[in-house]
Design a binder for these strands. Structure first.
Lengths: 207, 207
DNA sequence: TTCGGTATCACTCAAATGAGTGAGTACCCG
DNA sequence: CGGGTACTCACTCATTTGAGTGATACCGAA
């Protein structure tokens, strides 16, 4: 019987979730907590099969919660359960090893389906989340730093590891012009080197 | 009424799929093709809402098919429908803009659900696919270049944009030692600069 | 027409980087 | 014990880079 643990700071929501799950004879509720400070220990002791994890909790956020659980018991499936659609947090959770991502607007039946799905080795995601996840593989291009088209070209080459000289040759402009573009890019990204620019660009899905 | 087009080279499968969809009064089958060479034109002319696309087709593969469709009509949702679980092809499809990825073992009812889901703005994925997609955000660490633990530490700092001097300070080693590690990393990765190393490391999910 | 933004190019200078060479220590494994 | 690997450090040298400053040209909006 799948063992389930809930981390959720909203008392009302947590209790009603726990109540709902307890009414399902096919699950075993082995714990519910209003914070994830002790998630590591709890995970080691109770060995849950599925963890429902809220993101926005006082103290350690659920993003750390995922880490605590996964580091101590990788085979436990963690489903994020949150109101937020925040892109940054979403990707942090995924990188921390979350196995699913359901929005709190998810009706109880879909929640049960999701639990079944992670147990079966799947990855339940609310439709809007799934779409964002797939989108992250292609578009990106938030360009929140207002790079000009030319600067984006230069940044692409920079990311490919090109030196200023190679960029100049590739775009058929002078060495100093290439360097001028680079300097402007660094200013806009608030960094002081090409290496930082590459890290920021790839990390924040700018290109 | 959602307009649907199928690209699938297996005649029997394509025809039975088309037949199945035609029996559903809520969809309108506007075309079925055994290749995607003309996918661009077909898309512009018939303006489908949903495209079912096989990957493994003679001539242009379905990966190009996705591109043809998406370049000509981004609002058309493309669902990949294939027997393959090949990771490389999977990610190529996603990067090309696919909106869903269902395995051919998917029962018809789930297929209809998937079509509904893309139309609603979601991203239908077979469980095993969804899991792979999420895993791709964390797994990494193939270390096929045989970096030593220390070198991996250095590489991590390099990716964060640290200079040799900062790396030395952070690891409490001398400036020249930090540079020595960097030189060894560049050798192992077959690159000649920190920028290239960052690009390769992030691009190949080494770290 | 003036102003702002983009793109282009040049010059300087201190600092960082990549490449080469050499070498000492520590540890594990056979 | 010996050999291999990892980690450490130092020195040199040419090249690249980041930062500062300034200048010209084009274009579109005010």
């Amino acid at each position: 019987m799948p063992r389930i643990i809930i981390f959720e700071d909203n008392d009302k929501l947590r209790e009603s979730l726990a109540y709902l799950l307890k009414t399902q004879p096919e699950y075993e509720m082995v714990g519910e907590y209003n914070n994830c400070k002790e998630a590591a220990t709890i995970t080691r002791v109770y060995k849950p099969d599925v963890v429902l994890m809220d993101i926005d909790m006082p103290g350690d956020s659920g993003i750390n919660g995922v880490r605590y659980v996964k580091e101590n018991r990788p085979q436990t499936s963690v489903i994020m359960y949150t109101v937020f659609e925040d892109d940054e947090k979403l990707f942090q959770c995924l990188c921390a090893g979350a196995n699913g991502y359901l929005l709190k607007q998810t009706p109880p039946q879909k929640l049960f389906d999701g639990i079944q799905e992670v147990i079966a080795g799947g990855a339940p995601m609310s439709p809007v989340i799934a779409r964002k996840v797939l989108n992250s593989f292609q578009h990106g291009k938030s360009n929140k730093y207002f790079l000009t088209p030319r600067e984006i070209e230069v940044l692409h080459l920079l990311i490919k590891g090109y030196s200023a000289k190679m960029i100049a040759a590739n775009l058929d402009i002078s060495f100093d012009t290439a360097r001028a573009h680079l300097k402007n890019i660094y200013q806009k990204l608030h960094v002081n080197s090409g290496k930082e620019a590459i890290g920021k660009a790839l990390g924040e899905h700018i290109v």
